[in-house]
């Protein structure tokens, strides 16, 4: 009995840590897809970029860990605006297939670029000493770094939700996601709002990629290999929702950890099957509203 209990605790702990990383990365994808109606298969590129920038600063230049993470998020978020203005913007409201191709092309280019700059090895990720080792909680030992991810994730999610709920900017974003034309007609500058939201989304993805480098190793094929995972979180959560992907990430993070722990021989099969069933019953995702794209 104690074994079962300990397994449940362990699965929940690692599952939630994984879910935090998944959510940080995917929330931006959900918002950009919902806000701009844009099928962005290149979102993982920004998470990978965050991971690379952070590990480079932290390992090679000795930048303190929190600062390295913050710089990674800011650099990637700001850099993504350039991409948004030059490339993404041309495809808003256009053919979905063009969007798919454009973003796949970006993924390909990023794979080659990452190989060129950082080599084909996985970026080494060793938590700083004060986050390494184990921490004792309710009489059990847990990896400190994972516990840190859960706490940091929870803080970030709270900040994000509060920001979107309580600030004027958040209200504008919500208005634009709900009804872009109406938002435009009451005088919201949706064009610059798009750029800002895009930067916010990619910045969060970079944050997730940097913090989660230990769970989702950063390597050149990152964006392609994890693409399905991020898309699943968004599709299950419901396009354009902000809270939806959180619960989807929790569900999938814990389920994935549980299945891999209990029936490792089936790998990711169950996660895909679970997603298939959820999308079958609720094609718009768990929190998507029927009748909205």
């Amino acid at each position: 009995m104690a074994d079962v209990f300990s397994a449940v605790i362990s699965i929940a702990f690692h599952g939630v840590a994984f879910a935090m990383v998944l959510y940080l990365i995917s929330v931006g994808l959900s918002v950009t897809m919902g806000l701009m109606g844009f099928v962005n298969l290149a979102h993982g590129v920004f998470a990978a970029a965050g991971g690379y920038v952070m590990t480079t600063l932290f390992n090679d230049y000795g930048v303190p860990f929190p600062l390295a993470v913050a710089i990674a998020a800011i650099v990637v978020g700001a850099g993504s605006v350039a991409l948004e203005r030059t490339l993404y913007r041309r495809f808003y409201g256009g053919d979905e297939l063009d969007q798919v191709l454009m973003t796949i092309a970006l993924v390909f280019i990023s794979i080659a670029g990452a190989k060129y700059i950082w080599g084909s090895e996985q970026a080494p990720m060793h938590p700083p000493p004060y986050l390494a080792g184990q921490v004792e909680l309710i009489g059990r030992d847990f990896p400190t770094y994972r516990a840190f991810i859960i706490v940091a994730g929870a803080v970030l999610v709270t900040l994000l939700w509060l920001g979107l709920d309580r600030t004027r900017l958040g209200a504008k974003i919500r208005a634009a996601v709900d009804n872009r034309r109406m938002a435009q007609s009451v005088g919201i500058d949706t064009s610059s709002l798009f750029s800002f939201t895009f930067a916010l989304g990619t910045g969060l993805a970079a944050l997730g990629g940097a913090l989660g480098a230990e769970l989702l190793p950063v390597f050149p094929g990152y964006a392609l290999d994890n693409l399905i995972l991020f898309l699943i979180v968004v599709a299950v959560g419901g396009l354009g929702t902000i809270r939806g992907p959180f619960f989807a990430a929790l569900l999938l993070g814990v389920a994935d950890t549980a299945f891999k722990y209990l029936v490792p021989e089936f790998g990711s099969f169950f996660i895909y099957a679970l997603t298939l069933v959820i999308l079958l019953v609720r094609p718009k995702g768990l929190f998507g509203q029927i009748g909205r794209a």
Binding site: F91, A105, V107, I109, I111, G113, Y116
Partner: peptide, 17 residues
């Protein structure tokens, strides 16, 4: 072989644009 992805990516971008 390493940069096959790069060129196919550029090629694709050119096609889409």
């Amino acid at each position: 072989p390493t940069y096959w992805y790069f060129w196919i990516g550029i090629f694709l971008l050119a096609i889409v644009l």
